[in-house]
Design a protein around this nucleic acid. Structure first.
Length: 365
DNA sequence: AAAGAGCCCAACCGCATCTAA
DNA sequence: ATTAGATGCGGTTGGGCTCTT
């Protein structure tokens, strides 16, 4: 026996790095059905080559239905600053004051925005309050930090009106669609893998805190209500080029949705995400950047459709059912992808540097 | 257009704390 | 009371993105 604590998992056996949509889907699907009583065992049960800690982190910070994405409001930021003054770096405690916000997110916003912003504030006489220095409160962004290039973004926090909307919208939608498709099909097909698991009924235990409130999957739900399982107000954020460039997986998934134990399928799905060439990625980004202004954002959907057609041709997949035929007129396709009851919450503060955009994908409650 | 610099954030790591046996 | 395993927490970082030159 070696000294020290045993690692939580065999590092050589687990995948690291960004999560693919297929992995996300697996995790969400599994937790919906079984909850997360045991993070350590979850990856194996769900067929994920991930450390339990990684699954937990992914779920809590990203996939959890009640996670609130989007830019922090001025009020939230001020509250964070105040709480930090009293609590220090107790991110989880600070986060507890912001339902839906994660400690990681607050920690990030502190380290990237607030801490720097405070550096430009000077203590205001005796009141203890902080007041922006006159130089900072200036509307000009050109004089401050002249040598700091992108540090100007800090003060651009005050220029929230310049909303940028970009390519990731599509992936967010794709994931939601995929969720919905899988949810329908998962429960349309057998649940044999669920039955094999011990205490799959854990997800039906009414007081099981490990199961999120929406995850009480009612297999008796008609198809047209299953989509509501994902009507949580969290949003899906994508940050990798790979993910951005592989939209429309919902149509692929619609062909055949296996159980989470069907490794072949999931491996295939993972593999689909590496099909696109770098050239296509770059082209896609160029096109997307062209369209990254309000009002033309969803022109990108056309590109998605093109990509999907290409993919399906390559794979010999049939057109998806339920009116998702690929030869739909483009405007029809767009209207499908952006249901009219979807509320897109355009961020009030652009993430000037990150290129991250957040949306509330699901109809507001 | 390309390269470099800087920024952002998702995810990792390791330690702390909790819990059950 | 002790111990091992599981989970929580906070610090850190790598990769991708945007902006500037």
């Amino acid at each position: 026996m070696g000294k020290g604590r045993a690692p939580c998992c065999d590092k050589s056996q687990v995948k690291k790095g960004p999560w693919s949509p297929a992995e996300d889907l697996r995790l969400v699907t599994f937790i919906q059905k079984h909850g997360h009583e045991n993070w350590r065992a979850l990856p194996k049960q769900a067929g994920l080559l991930r450390c339990g800690k990684s699954c937990r982190l992914r779920w809590i910070n990203y996939l959890r239905p009640d996670v609130k994405r989007g830019n922090f409001t001025k009020e939230e930021e001020e509250a964070i600053i105040k709480l930090h003054q009293t609590l220090g770096n107790k991110w989880s405690k600070i986060a507890s004051h912001f339902p839906g916000r994660t400690d990681n997110e607050i920690k990030n916003v502190w380290n990237t925005h607030l801490k720097k912003r405070l550096a430009f504030k000077v203590p205001h006489s005796s009141g203890g309050e902080l007041k922006e220095s006159s130089s900072i409160s200036s509307s000009s962004s050109s004089t401050i930090m002249s040598g700091g290039k992108r540090n100007m973004a800090i003060e651009l926090d005050d220029q929230w009106k310049h909303v940028s909307v970009t390519k990731r919208t599509r992936v967010l939608e794709d994931i939601q669609d995929l969720h919905m498709e899988v949810t329908r099909d998962e429960f349309r097909t057998t649940n044999k893998e669920a039955q094999e698991l011990p205490s799959s009924s854990s997800s039906s235990s009414s007081d099981n805190s490990n199961v999120t409130n929406y995850s009480q999957v009612d297999v008796s739900l008609p198809d047209d209500q299953m989509g509501s399982l994902f009507n949580f107000s969290g949003a899906y954020v994508r940050n990798t080029l790979e993910e951005v460039s592989k939209p429309e997986i919902q149509d692929i998934a619609a062909v055949e949705i296996p159980s989470e134990s069907d490794l072949d399928f999931w491996n295939m799905l993972d593999g689909l995400y590496s099909l696109q060439t770098n050239e296509e990625v770059q082209l896609h980004n160029v096109e997307t950047n062209k369209n990254s202004s309000l009002g033309v954002e969803y022109n990108g959907e056309v590109e998605n459709r093109k990509w999907l057609r290409y993919l399906e041709n390559e794979l010999g997949l049939e057109p998806a059912r339920d009116g998702k035929q690929q030869n739909l007129p483009e405007d029809a396709a767009e209207s499908f992808l952006v249901p009219e009851n979807y509320q897109f919450e355009i961020p009030m503060k652009p993430e000037v540097n990150s290129g991250m955009e957040y949306y509330h994908l699901w109809p507001s409650l």
